[in-house]
Every structure is written in C-alpha cells, then in structure tokens.
Design a protein around this nucleic acid. Structure first.
Length: 244
DNA sequence: GTCCAGGTTT
DNA sequence: AAACCTGGAC
C-alpha cells in the first residue's frame, strides 16, 4: 500500500505550462474497461500473444520496433526455431545471430540481444540464474532494453502491473486525454508515461489486456494518418474524436 | 528521388 | 540531440 505522504507529486508547473490533470480513477476505469472489451472482440491472433515466455516476447518486441507485423512473423518463427531459448542464444556465436537477423536492419539490436543472453546465462549467472528479471527497472538495465521494452516484457510476459508507452500508445493517450501534448517532445512523452500509469487497471492480468489493447487500438483504429473514430470504442469521451 | 518514422544508445 | 537501417509515404 502506498501512503499519501510517500507519493511524489509534481511540485509546480513551469510558468506558462498548462497544469496537467491526470485522469481520475473513475475516468481511468471507464477508459480501460471499454478498451479491454473492444480488444476481446477485435484483437489479431499473433504468436507472441499466445505465449508468456519472456525470451520469446523479448525477441518479438525487439523485432517489432523496426518492422511491420507481417514481416516480423517470418523472422520471429525462424529466429526462435534456431534459438528457442536464452541458453541456445548465449551458446551461439554473434555471427550466427546476425545471420538470422539479416534483413531486419538495426543490427546493433541483434548484438545487444546476444550480449543480453550471454550476460544473463553466463557472465552474471549467479545474479540472474539464467532467467530474465521481472521488474521493469531490472529489465531496463539489460543491453538494448529501454523503458518501452522493459514495460512490455514485464507486462506481456510476467503480467506485472506495468505501464508501457510506444508511439502507438503515446498517440492514443495523447488524443484521448491530452490533445495539447506533442508526443515527440521529450517532456510531453514523460507526461504521457504518467498518464499511462494513471490509467492502468488494478491487476497485472487486466494490465496485460489493457496494454495489448492500447497498442492494438493505435495500430488498427487510432492510426497516425487516418483516425477511424467511427469504429473506436472510446469516441464518446475522446477529446480529439471527430464526428463523421 | 527525398523524407521520415521508430526505441535505444551515446 | 544525433545515429542506427529500412520500408513506406510523399
């Protein structure tokens, strides 16, 4: 239980900055419930949504950062067929890992993934016991894992009650709660993380669905160029919804 | 043909 | 704030 006296509240807003009103618990619950109900009916069936293997989910997240779903499907299957677990990845040579990654681009991430496997399985085995940690802060310390990926693994693999913000999520939250924010600005991005935490449902299990749903809505409905408000489960309360 | 998105690192 | 790398938008 978090005590009121322990909570860190924003001191004061900069002169000229608009005070941020975080969503109230009631707004948050309504938002999340509609979102999750929509997800249960419209979610795509993707392989990384059928597993809770943290390593498999990590691989999918790293690949999805750079590539569209349709192409990741192939690479994901081939990569995991070749390196089914952290141990097999740690045992491989970097060249073999890069060979599997060829065509995806951003090869530094393949190197980081390999480095991560060796660290967890070999170099710091006593510390990690050969398995990925569950807390976002601990995941965040691994090579190639930033704030988004840490949240994704914590939520999607371990069903922790963790927030995550990628561009899809940032866009959805910005449009719904804070149209005046600019997700590309670092400062506003931080604000969107606060909003993401404020709208998380109570349990880790519900947070899994909630986070998947946020990303799915951003990918299928609340897209960057065209917004399909007519099909949006949240249009009633959205601060940016259009009426046609 | 040029521009730009997209997480993490430096 | 720039670099990484590629597909897709313009």
């Amino acid at each position: 239980m978090i005590r009121l006296s322990q909570m860190k509240l924003p001191r004061r807003t900069r002169a000229g900055a608009k005070p941020l009103a975080l969503p109230s618990p009631v707004e948050a619950r309504d938002f999340s419930r509609r979102l999750r109900a929509w997800y249960r009916r419209h979610a795509r069936d993707l392989p990384w949504r059928r597993t809770r293997d943290a390593y498999h989910i990590l691989v999918s997240e790293l690949m999805l950062q750079q590539t569209q779903v349709s192409r990741v499907l192939d690479f994901y299957a081939r990569f995991l067929a070749r390196f089914p677990d952290l141990g097999s990845l740690a045992a491989a040579r970097e060249q073999q890992v890069l060979a599997q990654w060829r065509g995806l681009g951003y090869y530094a991430r393949a190197r980081n993934l390999h480095k991560l496997a060796r660290r967890v399985v070999r170099e710091e085995a006593p510390r990690y016991g050969g398995v990925l940690p569950q807390a976002p802060e601990a995941l965040r310390a691994l090579p190639g894992v930033g704030a988004y990926t840490a949240g994704a693994v914590a939520s999607f693999a371990f069903e922790q009650r963790a927030a995550l913000v990628d561009t899809n999520v940032a866009r959805v939250l910005q449009r719904f709660f804070a149209p005046h924010l600019h997700p590309k600005r670092a400062r506003d991005l931080t604000t969107l993380w606060s909003i993401a935490e404020a709208v998380l449902p109570r349990t880790g299990r519900a947070s899994w669905t909630h986070n998947q749903a946020l990303m799915e809505l951003g990918a299928l409905v609340c897209t960057a160029r065209v917004r399909h408000c007519g099909r949006c489960p949240l249009r009633g309360e959205c601060q940016s919804a259009t009426n046609d």
